[in-house]
Simulated scan of single mutants.
Amino acid sequence: MTQSLAAAMQAFTPRLPLAVALSGGADSTALLLASARRWPGQVHALHVHHGLQAAADDFERHCAALCARLQVPLTVRRVDARHAPGQSPEDAARQARYKAFEAMALDSQAQSAIQTIALAQHADDQVETLLLALSRGAGVAGLAAMPAQWQRGGLHWCRPLLGVAGADVRAWLRAQGEPWVEDPTNSDERYTRNRIRHRLLPALQQAFPQFRDTFARSCAHAAQADELLQELAVADLAATGRPPRIAALRLLSRARQANVLRHWLRSDHGTTPSAAQLDALLRQIAACTTRGHRIHLKVGRGHVVREGEALHWYNQQVLDFISARDGGAPKQSSQ
């Protein structure tokens, strides 16, 4: 069930010292204020200057003033968050932000042995993430939305406000008499997340007042299913080999082939196939009954090719080298 901010913070038991990711908005301001009160002298603030809008300097000044008043050390890092061709601006900024948080926390001069990084996403953010995943046709990993805690880079990451409604966070902050800054892009409905926030969430509130709780349960069920699929994929990859052998793959059901191939591509090569690419690969595996059957398919940011009895994945640079070495490009398999 959704919680009050006070209850959420009471249940939050981080490994100290704690770093709070501070944007200067209402949510991160509330998290920093509540954390600084509960663990005085044990809290740091981390601010990322994206440089993507004119207001970024104002965000940094607000964070500096807030941290000075709370006597909380502040570390600021400027990043280049411009998106690459084909990448969404939101995803580029998110990736740059998380890398910067990790780097700041691990910086020996800034960290004072920081153990935990706390992020201020709340229950409405979780709903938005789930609806975004649904709009994109995501599988169970996407429908699991945002985890409440995880390990990365030797740090413990937490979202202690994930069960608190956004309106309750702001109400708590107003009761403290604490100001915050508003990101002007939050009202820009060119971004899908903002359209969900401003159009869908009010409609859900009217039609299904308990939607935050029920959606959170669905996310939890999806997260559990994804964990089971990952365990199965690890076992199947151990059986099929790294790289996976085609004959061993063909002993699995089509669903298990898809599951283990997604895991192999993500864990070993850091790439994710589209649904169409994965379907094409599965059809080629089903058709691969002779030694002469070639496989050369675009998958993720590279290509899956058959070499002997196994599948291999190469990015384009490596494929060009192999092509030059062998005197020509591999033949495309028919689809």
Rank of each mutant, 00 (worst) to 15 (best):
A65W: 14
M104S: 06
D91H: 11
G51P: 05
L70N: 03
I117Y: 01
T116E: 07
L106F: 04
A113H: 06
D27L: 11
Q71C: 06
A123P: 06
L66Y: 01
Q53P: 02
A26S: 11
H62D: 02
Q109R: 05
A105P: 01
A103R: 06
A56L: 07
A30G: 08
R77L: 15
T116Q: 10
F101W: 15
A113C: 09
A68M: 03
A118T: 06
V43G: 05
A92H: 06
Y98T: 00
A64N: 04
L52Y: 07
D107K: 03
P40Y: 00
A103P: 00
L46Q: 03
A64P: 15
A54T: 10
Q42Y: 07
K99R: 15
V43H: 05
A93K: 09
A100R: 09
L52Q: 08
A84G: 05
L106G: 12
L74K: 02
G41E: 10
L33R: 10
W39Y: 00
H49Q: 09
F59N: 06
T29V: 07
Q121W: 04
P40E: 07
V72P: 01
R61A: 08
A36F: 08
W39P: 08
A65H: 08
C67L: 10
A110F: 07
H62S: 13
A55Y: 12
A105G: 14
L32R: 06
